[in-house]
Design a protein around this nucleic acid. Structure first.
Lengths: 147, 147
DNA sequence: GTGCTTGCAAATTCTTTGCACCATC
DNA sequence: GATGGTGCAAAGAATTTGCAAGCAC
């Protein structure tokens, strides 16, 4: 399911918000339109610097609050879940991860339990692959019950 | 290739260090043995609290420095690359990521370019999968040249 | 003995929070 | 006009850095 449409006519954002019970503000509207147009995987700080060009008075706190609002309501996603700090991988067996999007817990699953295709030898941009890592995102049993 | 063997007889760590030109210190040895025995995906802070039980005088800074040393020399890994801050996913097409372990850049690759197996419907621990995300880790073209 | 490592404290970076004022419904 | 949002500044995490003293080779 694609949460965000490609068009950018402004009315669309109001609909997204209406459907989720989110108040529409000027800051949110501009932030939303900007995020649709930004390439790559920007950090909140990078986003802030860009929005600032359209709303010079906007604060970094507002950008953070609204980014989190968008993430919570499923309008945008994180690249990979941000655990707030570095996490070490100590499991030496080939495995992948079941990551809970609610509590951010990580559970390992043996590679053998997933039937995988091989990585193509040839990757775009001359990228040299060394290994790969699959995150299966969803809800752990405990967080399903809390709903 | 498994960088770390299963045995924990102490001499092994010296070999690992010798092979990489790393100085062996008491702190490093204890940290290494501890990491081999810790389950899950601990943060530096969690690791610090545990090492402290064996070396009460150890500092958090030393734990950080040595964790990074271990990561740099390939003795341990991160769960997923830590970019220092939250990163937004704005690409609305189904895709995965080519992540450079050197410069930490993220390049998208269309899902169609990878032939994938489906996720099993039944996952351990009653985990409810919503989507999945593949990181292909390696070196981007630019970082390959710098070597 | 030399050079790298440690521990401490201070500095940075990233993110969140409290609060007075303002905009939206 | 009530409710929730914004901007500011301060507080809080997470991480890094500078430096004097100590350990490894």
């Amino acid at each position: 399911v694609i949460a965000v449409m490609q068009t950018t006519d402004g009315g669309e954002f109001r609909e997204l918000c209406a459907a989720r019970g989110i108040t529409v503000t000027h800051q949110r509207q501009v932030l939303f339109e900007l995020l649709l147009s930004v390439p790559g995987h920007p950090s909140p700080e990078e986003v802030y610097l860009r929005v600032k060009q359209q709303i010079p008075s906007i604060s970094l706190a507002t950008v953070y609050k609204n980014i989190h609002l968008f993430l919570r309501s499923g309008i945008f996603r994180e690249v990979s879940l941000h655990h707030g700090s570095l996490r070490l991988e100590l499991n030496q067996r080939p495995h992948h991860h079941l990551v809970c999007t609610v509590c951010k817990s990580i559970r390992d699953i043996d590679e053998a339990e997933l039937k995988l295709a091989a990585i193509p030898g040839q990757l775009p941009g001359g990228f040299l692959a060394e290994r790969f890592s699959i995150d299966i995102l969803g809800r752990c049993a405990a967080c399903q019950q809390k709903t």
